[in-house]
Nucleic acid binder design. Sequence first.
DNA 1: GCCAACGTTGGC
DNA 2: GCCAACGTTGGC
Length: 149
Amino acid sequence: MKSEPQEFSIHDLQRKGKALWDGVRNYQARNMLRDEMRVGDRALFYHSNAGGETGVVGEMTIANAAYPDPTQFQIHHKYFDPKSSPENPRWVAVDVAFEKAFPRLIPLSLLKQKKRLAGMPLLKRGNRLSIMKLTKTEYDYITTLANSV
DNA sequence: GCCAACGTTGGC
DNA sequence: GCCAACGTTGGC
C-alpha cells in the first residue's frame, strides 16, 4: 500500500498505532480494498514519491474491513467527492494497524534487481495503483530483505 | 521540474 | 461509443 511520506509515513502510523487508510480514488484500488481485504491481512507500507527514499518501509495489518471513506463527504476536505453521497458512497477506506518499521528502507531499485519479484504489479511498467496484491512468497521474501540489507 | 503512462471528462 | 484534452501519479 503506497503513501507519500510527506502525506502519511510509516512513522506517522507508528506514532498513532492505528489509522484510517483514506483517499483512495481509483476504482481498481478501491475494488481491492472493498473485495479482497480482510481483518488480519498483512500489508507492506510503501513510501512513494520520496526521492531517494522510495521503497518499502514496514509492515501493517488490516484492522477493519472496508467501509465508506468519510473524507469523500467532507466538503472542505481535499478528498471530497461531490458525486458521492452517504446514501450511495463511491469510495471506501480500511483501518490499518502498525506492525513494524524496517530498520532501513528497502529501495525500489533493490526490488527491481530481484528476479523473483519481477512478477509484482508494483514493478510492472506503467503501474500507478496505490493498492496492489502480492503473493505470500513475495511478501516473505521482501521481509527477509528487510532483515538482511 | 520533466515526462511517460494512465485515468477521467465531456463534446460530438 | 469515440476520442481529444486534461489531470494525476510517481519515478527520475
